[in-house]
């Protein structure tokens, strides 16, 4: 067997230029970008395979764009950020959103359901200090996004896969099944069937490794809805076995509350609640 050319299969020989990677932050907790620094074993080798051109949390050396890959953390919550994300798009060949905030609006998207009047009042109590939008929206609501990495927080192995794949010019391989499959592979007993604990696992995208059921609690949807999630089916069933919307609504309105499939079913639940309470008032 000859060695010549073999290395080209997995390395990026013939790609003299290391991809320039930037990390941008919007409204978020920093946990997702920290995931990169949490790749302790891989950090230095990753850093030698790519050019970390802009990553303020890790480096004072902040170079100007354009960038080959921009990792974007956080959601859009201020007028300034509405403009800044456009700049990021202009500067970036590939935009990857990382985490629930960037892909679905994050926990701060709960403001989208807030009492709007009350919310405005509190903002305008000191309008000269702050500017903030009434909604928290995912990056994709503002610019075209090339790849979305889910999770609150993201899985660092998946982040590495995305970086390596993009550096090699291929599509990242991110599994797209429900949390249930991971539970079964781990040998975890279903907390819903065996204990009656409401669990979003059946409609939640894998990525965390199905940790919550292994820790004896229901999944609360950190990785957002799985592809073709049948959230209505799940909620209908939970209601049929006696879980009330008082339990289900907050479960759905967590870190991926504004993900369309979760939002649709939680809205359905809350409007049913509203109709019911209206009905009881008439009685």
């Amino acid at each position: 067997m000859s060695g010549k050319g073999d290395t080209s299969m997995a390395s990026n020989a013939g790609r003299p230029k290391k991809p320039r990677v930037a990390v941008f932050k919007f409204a978020s907790c920093d946990g997702c970008q920290l995931s990169l620094l949490d790749c302790e074993d891989e950090l230095l080798s990753v850093a030698s395979a790519i050019e970390i051109a802009y990553f303020p949390e890790a480096s004072s050396d902040m170079r100007e764009g354009p960038y080959d890959v921009s990792l974007v953390e956080g959601s859009i919550t201020t007028p300034h950020d509405v403009e800044r994300i456009q700049f990021v798009r202009q500067q970036s060949a590939v935009v990857v959103t990382i985490g629930a905030c960037a892909t679905a609006g994050g926990i701060q998207s709960l403001r989208n359901w807030g009492n709007h009047e009350e919310f405005l009042k509190c903002v305008y109590a000191s309008p000269e200090y702050i500017s903030s939008l009434a909604t928290s929206t995912p990056i994709s609501a503002h610019i075209p996004v090339d790849f979305e990495l889910r999770g609150c927080p993201i899985n660092r192995h998946q982040l590495l896969e995305v970086i390596i794949a993009l550096a090699a010019g291929r599509k990242p391989r991110i599994p797209n099944h429900s949390v249930c499959l991971d539970c079964k592979i781990r040998g975890t007993v279903c907390v819903e069937v065996a204990q009656g604990i409401p669990c979003l696992g059946p409609v939640t995208h894998s990525g965390c490794g199905a940790i919550c059921p292994d820790f004896n609690r229901g999944c609360y949807g950190c990785f957002g809805p799985v592809m073709q999630a049948n959230c209505d089916g799940l909620v209908d069933h939970y209601q049929s076995v006696g879980h009330t919307s008082e339990v289900l609504l907050p479960l759905l309105r967590n870190f991926n509350a504004a993900a369309p499939q979760f939002a649709a079913v939680s809205d359905r639940l809350s409007s049913a609640d509203a109709r019911e309470s209206e009905g009881s008032q008439h009685v």
């Binding site: 067997m1 010549k4 050319g5 073999d6 080209s8 299969m9 010019g169 291929r170 599509k171 391989r173």
Partner: peptide, 17 residues
């Protein structure tokens, strides 16, 4: 079409798979 065939397309004479 996919990742594998894309990778093969970057191979040349002498390479192995």
């Amino acid at each position: 079409a996919g990742n594998v065939t894309h990778a093969i397309s970057s191979l040349s004479t002498g390479d192995t798979l």
